[in-house]
Amino acid sequence: MVDVIETERLTLRSRNESDLEANLMMELDPEVHHYIFSSAPDPVEHKAESFLGLQRVGLK
């Protein structure tokens, strides 16, 4: 499995624990979650689910 893909303008890498708070802030923004979720997620529940998802894929 490739850990990092880089181009001149973009770096793609696996998510890690340090990304969790920023990712949650983005997903819970009403302007963003409108496109991701059918209804607004509960912030506490969503954080727990996101953290468990990171653990399932091998948190780094």
Results as ranks from 00 to 15, higher is better:
Glu17Arg: 10
Leu54Asn: 11
Pro30Asp: 05
Leu20Glu: 06
Glu27Val: 04
His33Asn: 13
Pro30Glu: 03
His34Gly: 14
His34Thr: 15
Glu21Asn: 07
Val32Pro: 05
Ala22Thr: 12
Leu24Asn: 07
Thr11His: 08
His34Leu: 14
Glu8Gln: 07
Leu24His: 03
Leu24Thr: 04
Ile36Phe: 06
Met26Glu: 15
Leu12Ala: 08
Ser39Asn: 15
Asp42Gln: 00
Ala22Trp: 14
His33Tyr: 09
Val44Gly: 00
Gly58Phe: 08
Gly58Leu: 02
Arg9Val: 08
Ser18Asn: 14
Phe37Tyr: 15
Val44Lys: 00
Met25Glu: 15
Phe51Val: 04
Glu21Thr: 11
Gly53Tyr: 00
Glu21Cys: 01
Lys47Val: 00
His34Ile: 15
Glu49Pro: 02
Lys47Thr: 05
Ala22Asn: 13
Leu52Gly: 06
Glu21Ala: 09
Ser39Tyr: 15
Tyr35Leu: 12
Pro30Tyr: 01
Glu45Asp: 13
Glu49His: 08
Glu49Ala: 10
Gly53Pro: 03
Val4Ala: 09
Val57Trp: 12
Leu59Glu: 10
Leu52Lys: 13
Ala40Cys: 12
Leu59Gln: 12
Pro43Met: 01
Glu17His: 07
Arg9Leu: 07
Ser38Gly: 08
Arg9Asp: 10
Phe37Asn: 11
Val4Ile: 13
Lys47Pro: 02
Phe51Cys: 05
Leu20Cys: 14
Leu28Thr: 04
Asn16Phe: 05
Leu12Lys: 04
Lys60Tyr: 11
Arg56Glu: 15
Leu12Thr: 06
Glu31Ile: 01
Val44Pro: 00
Leu10Ile: 10
Glu21Ile: 01
Glu45Val: 05
Gly53Cys: 02
Val44Leu: 01
Pro43Glu: 00
Leu54Tyr: 10
Val4Asn: 06
Met25Thr: 15
His34Phe: 14
Leu59Pro: 11
Thr11Arg: 12
Thr7Tyr: 03
Gly58His: 05
Pro30Arg: 00
Ile5Arg: 06
Lys47Ile: 03
Glu31Thr: 07
His34Ala: 15
Arg9Ala: 08
Leu24Cys: 11
Arg15Gln: 13
Gln55Met: 13
Leu54His: 09
Phe37Thr: 04
Phe37Glu: 15
Asp42Pro: 00
Ala48Asn: 06
Arg9Gly: 10
Tyr35Met: 03
Met25Leu: 15
Thr7Ala: 01
His33Ile: 03
Met1Gly: 11
Gly53His: 01
Arg13Tyr: 14
Leu52Thr: 13
Arg13Val: 08
Phe37Leu: 09
Asp29Arg: 03
His46Ile: 04
Arg15Ala: 13
Arg15Val: 12
Met26Leu: 15
Leu52Glu: 15
Ser14Arg: 06
Asp19Cys: 03
Arg56Val: 13
Met26Gly: 10
Glu49Tyr: 10
Asp3Thr: 09
Asp29Tyr: 09
Arg56Lys: 14
Ser18Ala: 09
Tyr35His: 12
Glu27Met: 07
Glu21Ser: 05
Gly53Ala: 02
Ser14Leu: 08
Glu45Lys: 02
Val2Pro: 11
Lys47Asp: 01
Val57Ser: 12
Arg13Met: 03
His34Val: 15
Ser50Pro: 10
Ala48Trp: 04
Pro41Gly: 00
